[in-house]
């Protein structure tokens, strides 16, 4: 037995070569661990709790060469008024190109039948899907984060069935679809959970909203419709309803919006509930400027934009104009 036992030296040459091989392997294992550690190394050791830098939640979906346009068409058949209005805007092809992935953000806030006009009318949603697909869109998604249970909202409002028939894809919000979003420089929308999942790969955004009275905000039209992109405990924004609508106007820059004033909810909004709350106003608006659309919508409710403080503030911040006449809207009648 060697005098060095039980701690023998490496030994004869053959063993030494084997040792070198093993040593190389061990060295490689250690190096790999070290490399992995370096890759995962937390270079910004914690200490800035709650101070994440906000990043913009949504890209700008406007079509640059479309400019600011508006069309106002009167009539009772939503499909016809919508088609005519889009023709007057230069055709759907001006906005939707081949291969576009489009989101149609409807207002499906409540599990109410379409006749109560508390939600986007299924005809409008379906016709938008058809038009987009006709213009070559690769995919048309229809979504909203409603107030009531999403499945019932889409089913009872008739949107699920009509959109399905038109070939659109209905997206019911899942927990994983919400991610924190911010309006840069914003005060309210800061690292707030938003329905951003469906927007992955999306190139165009269309808003479609009815004209409704809203007890807290005065009215709920195309801009208030973006509220449905907010998740979390968003009801605390009712502490500053005009503030949140203005921030939504800044955050969401849609391709165009559709404001359906075929029937307008004059009272008891935003839920309504009775046909007595509705007034036939027989008008449908398509606009690339949501502020102008809402300013016009206010007139359907027998009011002016002065009655809706968020409109003036949004206009001041460059989100659009309250003077919709300045856009020289195309007007037509198809009744």
């Amino acid at each position: 037995m060697s005098p060095d036992a039980p701690f023998p030296p490496i030994g004869p040459e053959a063993t030494r070569r084997a040792f070198l091989r093993r040593a190389l392997k061990a060295g490689a294992a250690i190096a790999a661990t070290g490399g992995l550690a370096a890759w995962l190394w937390d270079r910004h050791p914690p200490g800035t709790l709650g101070l994440r830098a906000p990043a913009s939640a949504l890209p700008d979906f406007r079509v640059s060469d479309a400019g600011r346009r508006m069309a106002i068409v009167t009539g009772t058949d939503r499909v016809r008024t919508l088609r005519r209005a889009l023709e007057a805007m230069g055709g759907i092809g001006r906005f939707i190109k081949r291969g576009d992935r489009v989101i149609v953000k409807v207002n499906a806030a409540f599990a109410a039948p379409s006749v109560l006009c508390a939600t986007t009318h299924p005809d409008v949603a379906a016709e938008l899907v058809r038009l987009c697909l006709g213009a070559g869109a690769a995919k048309v998604l229809v979504t909203d984060n409603p107030i009531n249970d999403p499945e019932s909202c889409f089913a009872l409002s008739g949107i699920a069935a009509s959109v399905g028939a038109a070939g659109g894809a209905l997206v019911l919000p899942r927990a994983a679809d919400f991610a924190d979003g911010s309006l840069p420089g914003g005060r309210l929308i800061r690292n707030w959970p938003m329905l951003l999942g469906p927007f992955r790969g999306v190139t165009k955004l269309i808003g479609a909203a009815p004209v409704k009275h809203h007890a807290r905000a005065g009215a709920s039209m195309t801009i208030k419709n973006w509220y449905g992109l907010l998740g979390g405990r968003r009801n605390q924004f009712h502490q500053d309803i005009n503030g949140i609508i203005v921030e939504l106007a800044q955050l969401v820059r849609p391709t165009f919006v559709v404001l359906d004033g075929t029937m307008s909810m004059l009272t008891n909004g935003p839920t309504g509930g009775s046909l007595a709350d509705l007034k036939p106003t027989h008008t449908l608006v398509v606009s690339t400027d949501p502020v102008a659309a809402d300013a016009f919508g206010a007139t359907l409710l027998g009011r002016t934009f002065h009655d809706l403080p968020y409109l003036s503030r949004a206009a001041q911040l460059g989100c659009g104009t309250t003077d919709f006449g300045a856009l020289q809207p195309a007007r037509d009648d198809v009744s």
């Binding site: 005098p3 060095d4 039980p6 701690f7």
Partner: peptide, 8 residues
């Protein structure tokens, strides 16, 4: 203990 063990 051997010298090597002592060294270890």
């Amino acid at each position: 203990p051997s010298a090597r063990e002592s060294a270890a």
